[in-house]
Simulated scan of single mutants.
Amino acid sequence: MLDQIIDARAASLGNGFSVRRILPYRLRRMLGPFIFMDHAGPVNIMPDRVADMDVLPHPHIGLSTVSYLFDGQVTHRDSLGVQQVIRPGEVNWMTAGSGIAHSERFEDPAMLAGGKLEMIQTWVALPEADEERAPTFENYQPDILPVFTDKGIWMRLIAGDAFGLTNTVKTHSPLFYAHVVLEAGTRFGLPRGHAERGAYVAKGSVEVNGHRYGVGQLLVFTPGIDPVLVAHETCTLMLLGGEPLGERFIWWNFVSSRRDRIEQAKADWEAGRIALPPNDNAEFIPLPHDNSRPAGAPHTPPPPPLS
């Protein structure tokens, strides 16, 4: 019933800011089209260190970033000229396509000092036909996202289709992504009709077949099996998956079906061919280089920033 249990690993984003890194994992690079998943927070830092949290302008290709907040806020700026304050319950879907740069700034010191920042960020790989599409950014407000409630159950559909629900969030391949809160003792299943399905435990714990799983664990289920998840206590789950897209390469913030496209993106960023956000262009993250690696040694890409 369970194909894999992926335990989140601590990943440093620099300046003392670490997150739980769920995907990619060495034994599981993707779940459906999802190729990256981070869980950040709750964050609690001193006001004089807020600037250390900022994620400076950096590039992406070949993917969509999906930012979803449980609490707090972050300001997004990108090379399309978009400036968007991201708040809890919204879906912020940035499709990088042929190339985009963006930043994420934490501009409310009181929020961070009070431990009021917690977010999930995923990357969704694009089908080959869409990898070079023009970049876009869309903000979807909570009131257009369907919510399902029943005894002990609250669920918001973030994107795709699940349990007969759909919404207007524009995706590029079949997938589902949902935020679910269960009260203790509640039984819940996974949406049918998707080749690959998983449940990430963001808060609390659940039982599957008598085994208990807790915060920071991604449960990947066997295709064709309909598991029952039982809330051991009040818990928050992120359900995700969909149709696989085939092999993808990932290096830093770049995703592609072609290795040579990754190399081109690296060269483009170094040469300044990916524009910076017009309203946040005084600094940026340079392309990482691993000078400590001996010639011919296997290359491990540097960790991506939060998005």
Rank of each mutant, 00 (worst) to 15 (best):
D7I: 03
R9Y: 04
A10D: 12
L13T: 06
G14P: 05
S18T: 14
S18V: 13
R21Y: 00
L23E: 05
L23Y: 02
P24L: 10
Y25L: 05
L27Q: 14
L27K: 14
L27W: 02
R28E: 10
R28L: 15
R28V: 08
R29D: 14
M30H: 09
M30K: 07
L31Q: 13
L31T: 13
G32T: 12
F34I: 13
F34D: 08
F34W: 10
I35N: 10
I35Q: 05
F36P: 02
M37A: 12
H39M: 08
G41Y: 14
G41N: 08
P42C: 03
P42D: 02
D48K: 13
R49V: 07
R49Y: 13
V50Q: 12
V50P: 01
A51R: 07
D52Y: 07
D52M: 10
D52R: 06
M53P: 01
M53Y: 14
M53F: 15
D54N: 15
L56S: 10
L56R: 04
L56P: 02
P57Y: 07
H58R: 05
P59I: 11
P59R: 03
H60K: 03
I61F: 03
I61H: 02
G62T: 05
L63F: 13
S64M: 09
S64R: 06
S67M: 10
Y68S: 11
Y68N: 07
D71N: 13
D71P: 01
G72M: 06
Q73S: 15
V74E: 00
V74Y: 00
V74P: 00
V74C: 01
R77V: 00
D78L: 01
S79C: 06
G81F: 14
V82E: 09
Q83A: 13
V85R: 14
I86W: 05
I86K: 02
